[in-house]
């Protein structure tokens, strides 16, 4: 009897640099799932990987750019969007995707986020929100809820501050496509990322994820599986809800869906249209 050795390969493996594996991510982390979502979105669209540039900042999520078999640029902390704008303006034919975490995008890079939304420059930002700075050991960040515990907001008081709601922030800053999903809604999230890539304009997709090692442990939220189960339980799909109603209350209700999908002039397209008009 002969045995046929069959190597099972993940369908998305072709997009991933297997020589870079194993991942740096902790067991139960959501970033790997999000990497898969982005790969699926690109796969569904059949984009030439040569024409894709994945740009990330610093932090756990920031490391994801290095796993893609695309052009990649792992920038400094907070600067992924600013850098990506330069890339997109210099060569609008490139598909520009930013993947980074909530601290990178909404704290140190917050100014770049709101202004890129305002300009409506064509790129897709996938922001993994795990409610804390994971890579530096779990400090509170711009999305950490009031009174949550972290290394720098320890018990018994917890976090003095209040969180950004990233959907509201992106929508009110002018992004033309805004969605939120949790890491467990992988298919829906991948579809939104796909829509975001297709959208001619600034697309912002928040993926609410789990950081069992830091945020989970500080707040006794259980292991990775438990945290992801919880996300599934509290996720409430409300496609088309006005973005200012897209509440995020970690314990009870995380409103998910696509909240903004509007048409407005895209930055690089405006530049080239103006040029054409003047040059006649």
């Amino acid at each position: 009897m002969t045995t046929v050795q069959k190597t099972l390969s993940h369908p998305m493996a072709k997009y991933i640099r297997e020589d870079r594996l194993p991942w740096i991510y902790c067991p139960g982390c959501s970033v790997g799932i999000v990497t898969n979502m982005v790969a699926r979105a690109i796969d569904n669209l059949g984009i030439d990987f040569n024409k894709v540039v994945i740009i990330s900042g610093i932090g756990c999520t920031g490391r994801s750019s290095g796993y893609f078999k695309t052009g990649s640029f792992h920038t400094t902390h907070g600067r992924a969007i600013a850098f990506a704008e330069g890339v997109k303006i210099a060569n609008p034919d490139l598909e520009v995707i930013v993947i980074s975490g909530d601290g990178d995008i909404a704290a140190i890079g917050g100014n770049h986020l709101i202004h890129a939304c305002r300009r409506n420059i064509d790129m897709t930002v996938v922001c993994v929100n795990n409610f804390n700075y994971g890579m530096t050991g779990g400090q509170f960040g711009p999305t950490t809820e009031h009174e949550r515990y972290s290394q720098t907001s320890p018990p018994p008081i917890g976090n003095y501050e209040h969180p950004f709601n990233l959907v509201k922030l992106a929508a009110s800053s002018g992004a033309s496509f805004v969605a939120r999903w949790t890491a467990v809604q992988a298919r829906r999230a991948a579809r939104s990322i796909q829509k975001g890539i297709e959208k001619e304009g600034f697309s912002f997709i928040e993926i609410v994820g789990a950081c069992p090692t830091a945020f989970g442990r500080s707040n006794r939220l259980g292991d990775g599986v438990t945290m992801h189960k919880h996300l599934l339980e509290v996720a409430e799909i409300q496609n088309g809800l006005p973005p200012h109603e897209a509440e995020l209350d970690y314990d009870n209700r995380i409103v998910c869906g696509e909240f903004v999908n509007i048409e407005k002039p895209e930055y690089t397209a405006v530049i080239s249209r103006m040029r054409d008009r003047i040059e006649g």
Binding site: R79, A82, E85, G86, V87, A90, N91, H112
Partner: peptide
């Protein structure tokens, strides 16, 4: 901060 990073992004993309 943004100006500098945009400039670098542009060089990376060929400008």
């Amino acid at each position: 901060i943004s100006a500098m990073n945009k400039g670098l992004g542009a060089w990376y993309a060929g400008a």
